[in-house]
Design a protein around this nucleic acid. Sequence first.
DNA 1: TAGTTCTGCGTATGGTCTACGCATAACAGC
DNA 2: GCTGTTATGCGTAGACCATACGCAGAACTA
Lengths: 253, 253
Amino acid sequence: MAAKTDDSGPVLPAAIESAWGLRERPPKGPRPGMSVPAIVDAAVRVADADGLAAVSMSRVAKELGAATMALYRYVGSKDELLMLMVDTGYGPSPGPPAPEDDWRAGLTRWAWAEHEVLRQRSWLLHVPISGPPITPQQLGWMEDGLRCLDGTTLGEGEKMSVLLLITGYVRNEATLTSQIAEGSRAAGVEPSEMMPAYGRLVARLIDPARFPALHRVLNAGVLYQDDDPDDEFVFGLDRILDGVEALIRRRAG
Amino acid sequence: MAAKTDDSGPVLPAAIESAWGLRERPPKGPRPGMSVPAIVDAAVRVADADGLAAVSMSRVAKELGAATMALYRYVGSKDELLMLMVDTGYGPSPGPPAPEDDWRAGLTRWAWAEHEVLRQRSWLLHVPISGPPITPQQLGWMEDGLRCLDGTTLGEGEKMSVLLLITGYVRNEATLTSQIAEGSRAAGVEPSEMMPAYGRLVARLIDPARFPALHRVLNAGVLYQDDDPDDEFVFGLDRILDGVEALIRRRAG
DNA sequence: TAGTTCTGCGTATGGTCTACGCATAACAGC
DNA sequence: GCTGTTATGCGTAGACCATACGCAGAACTA
């Protein structure tokens, strides 16, 4: 119906376009000595080893034996590099759900896959995400999530909302867990001692008259025990999936 | 039972201790020309006006007509200042739930209160939170949330998990919303045009054979319409609360 | 009045990202 | 083969940033 208006969209950063396989190299000029994937891999290596804070342009360049400014021939800015790091950091999506899985089993597997990635690469949580997903792998994750809901009665918009809900939960849970780990490393405390220490600290600070409910939680010893983070994770995930199940039943019934 | 081991906890930053009203000023030396609250207020003012990225020690000092290094007599580091900014940025908690509210109404109000704060001060989302809450106001929010669940059959640990679940959801939703707003400002696009532009972009990038489910979502026009962010918010919140309700019924029955 | 202790803050160090420009390498066309 | 064009590699330099350190002087105690 409409005329071609394909250039109307927001301008995609150059490196992202080449991640989608668009944009070929012009035949002139000296052959490039590096490649965008090599740079991104090096940056991911640095982040894996020393955290996201260690990822500076000069550090990445050193990793490659190149000069700092050489990188700017390949990526437009550090933010662009970060975007690409997220793409390869997540890696390929877990794949579509198994045929015998219902939506709940599929989404559970989907959530665990992201959980696992974030457990292993907690620096992904520190990357300031600056917009909706546009890189190939990220949309791949989305696709796989959507397929889990294929057989359900939900509307397309509702499917999207459910995925947003779950991925947000996974990220949030991973953030809390990694904060405890990082905090314990910074304070030189055993990770298993972190929550108990926090409980004692809060107990020292609060006035039971002003914070009765919190005081009750402390008395129950909730904060003192170092419970399995995985239990915490499945608790929240099951709550959310229960909520989704209620919606699906309502739509179906 | 146990002997006094109150010094065993992790060392609290000096400025946080004085936020709790501990630690009094030594009587010697010249009278301080500033105060921690004044510094934090100035920093919050800068963040409100120009975003968190604009908050540098020199900028805050300029705001106060003071020298940069003068601030370090009051806060130990920039991270400490950020921690205090979060405390006053959130402001006082919404207060305990009204007596006539059931848990669901109470938590809904609680979630909306945080939602509102984050809508108004989106820079709070950019502060790298570095541990569990320890400032007075933050524990105040926690207290109010816990009180909403007072009459329920949930265990103390479960109450805590539910609050974590909700606050995580609120933060996540606010993050997405503010990203759209910031992205549209950066790209010079009308905020209402942001999602449609994103939809067109994704449509241009993906191969329908490789991304069938995503393609179906696009065809349904889900991404093109600029729907009310509040609708999206209540959708997810209702899903979560449905899940909590299912748990409460199970515990009760 | 002397001593102590704390404040304000100037200076300096080492880190960040990146704009700009130059020398050079590789190709296209004649 | 020569020349013009275009891309690359990268050195220099600028504009920021947090903050360690040390000194002058103010305000209190004795």
